[in-house]
Amino acid sequence: MTGYIIRRIVGALFVLLMLSFIVFMLVNAVPGNTLTRILNQSPQGVNLTPAQIEQYEIDLGLDKPVLERYGNWLWDAVNGDLGKSFATSLPVWGEIQDRLPRSIQLVIMATLISSLLAVPIGVFSAIRQGGAGDYISRIFAILGLAVPNFFLAVLVVTFAAAWLNVSLSTIDPPYIWDGVAHNLEGLIAPSLVLSASLMATVMRMQRSTVLEVVNEDYVRTARAKGLAERAIIMRHVIRNSLIPVITIFANQFAFLISGAVIVEFIFRIDGIGALAVRAIRQVDFTLVLGISLVVGFGVVFINILVDLSYAWLDPRIRYS
């Protein structure tokens, strides 16, 4: 087991190194001068003398070759310094740190909502295959996959606001430790919207794996020895159908963050997603880089966790 964990961590570090290199090269491969792009965004940038521009370049370290800049940036990043935002001159890590709690909470809540609802519905749908409940939940799942999250968010913001007489989009929720009630008031609606497509995916997956597991030999054995149907479902079917479903959660994590970008943007939650939209609009490359690295780290970390939980759920995997 230890060897397996070490192998996974080394692999993950390599992936992160690759990711940082790709994103760094990407944002530095901009046609034209990076600095001109940045200066065009700021009002005072237009009237700078060539000498001032040169000074800016030296300040931002843009006069050095790109590989050297990557090396310096990576060294600083490893030491916990992600540089300063081009647009605001604030430290990138500080900007991210302030917004991380809300985004993490949003993603956790969406994951909880979808697993608590979709897993039981999927199991129910499978054991009552062909029944009315099965059809209804499948129709909702198919719709959930097709409705864009931004459309759903717009609908909720517009119509819930009008009908329930609450303004959902202007609440900037406090951190959860600064007031649970206010925090949940602001984050419940966005996390419901965010969970929609994940719920649909998980429900479909849960349904089809249960249908597969039900036909396995060990389920037939359990039936043959006269075990109650309830015990068969709880002990044999659900447990064995969970592994592929957990993979779906891991695979969908990056998509969930994509969704969070949109949902935070529409509900005006000041999280990582909203920060990313702002950074990309302002061509704030240090901020884009920092966000990519932090988010990429999260995705890689979740994938390791899921792989380990796999090995824990199914001992056969530990030895392969």
């Binding site: 944002v27 949109i262 990429g296």
Partner: peptide, 22 residues
């Protein structure tokens, strides 16, 4: 495979937004 892992570790929308802006 590792390069493809790196691309998949970025949320698709973030990757696409950055690329389009660049």
């Amino acid at each position: 495979q590792r390069i493809s892992d790196a691309f998949q570790a970025l949320p698709p929308l973030l990757l696409m937004m950055t690329l389009v802006t660049v």
